[in-house]
Simulated assay, not measured.
Amino acid sequence: MKIKELFEKKRFVFSFEIFPPKPTTPLERIYNTLDELKGLKPDFISVTYGAGGSTRDRTPQIAIDVKNNYGIESLAHLTCIEATREETCDLINFLIGNGVHNILALRGDLPQGQSAPKGDFRHAVDLVSFLREKYGQAISIGGAAYPEGHIECEDPIKDLRYLKQKVDAGVDFLITQLFFDNELFYRFMERADIAGINVPISAGIMPVVNKNQIERIVTLCGASLPQKFVRILHRYADEPRSLEEAGIAYATDQIVDLIAFGVRGIHLYTMNKAHVARRIVSNVSTLRETMHGPKGEEALYEGR
């Protein structure tokens, strides 16, 4: 099933993100994680390219295995930086030929020291346009959204305009960058609605379970940290088990509040930590079951 169809049929979509192990790490490690995640019954699992595309060769095979070996809808990340049209078609054809019809179209990170993209695509919108023209409705295309604006774009209005261009080019659904302040997400949703962005938007949530993790996150994506979150970090920075518990609790509170708002989906950045995902799913299981019925007039936030 295409992810577009999942959003059409369900009021609420719950999904996970995993990343391939480093090339020096046995591939079996990710399958051990998937063995545990399968029992949590996500609607789909996305597979990243890894930092800087370092694990891109492993992404297609893992995405195919998620679909065919685990029976879970799979979303393959595809970055276009330095990619050619021919290479892109080869990869998409390989995925389609093996049952994967969902693509998250991304620009990707610029290589260190490089100031502009190389290859046939400069921006994600170029990749989206190409995929939609080439493959039509044979694939479902997702895109990235940034509640606080992209780190490389200082003007949030311009950033929203770029997002609308991606949707107009053929994006079926959006998954947001992680955020820790729900109010920022709600304001983003209001602006997106005004801008005419009318595809489902899934909120990206990452449970922070160690101090180094949050430092990397802030550096890479510029997510702001509300005072409540900062207090947790200061209190438990040197107590790893307590910080993990607090991080799970904070992410759970975010998700409960988002579901009350009527968000169309939650995309949980699992960081390949199945036990953390299990705790969060257990915490929100009752709400998830309530929301997981077919989409209809009772949907809480029909505009998304």
Rank of each mutant, 00 (worst) to 15 (best):
F185L: 15
K9S: 13
T84R: 07
R122Y: 14
A138T: 13
S242P: 00
L27C: 01
L163Q: 07
I232Q: 03
C221Q: 06
I96A: 12
E152S: 11
E86C: 05
G119D: 04
N182S: 07
T88V: 09
T290Q: 15
E154C: 11
I175S: 06
A145K: 03
S242C: 10
R187A: 11
E245N: 10
E154L: 15
K273G: 06
G265W: 00
D126Q: 11
V256F: 11
P207L: 02
R187V: 07
V66T: 04
G296S: 13
D57E: 15
Y49I: 00
K10R: 08
F19N: 03
H123Q: 14
D35P: 00
T270V: 08
R235A: 13
E215V: 15
R235M: 05
G262R: 03
G119P: 09
R235L: 08
P111L: 09
E82D: 15
A299R: 02
G262F: 04
S140R: 14
F261Y: 15
G52I: 01
A124L: 07
A260H: 15
G149Y: 05
S46Q: 09
I103L: 06
P111T: 11
A223T: 12
R29W: 05
K67L: 03
D120I: 11
A299G: 02
H77E: 00
P111E: 06
K134Q: 15
V263C: 09
K164N: 03
T84Q: 07
N182L: 02
E245W: 02
P207M: 07
L6W: 09
T176Y: 04
Q165M: 13
R288E: 07
I3W: 08
I3T: 04
L178G: 12
I92W: 04
E289T: 02
K4F: 03
A299F: 13
V263M: 02
T290I: 15
G265D: 10
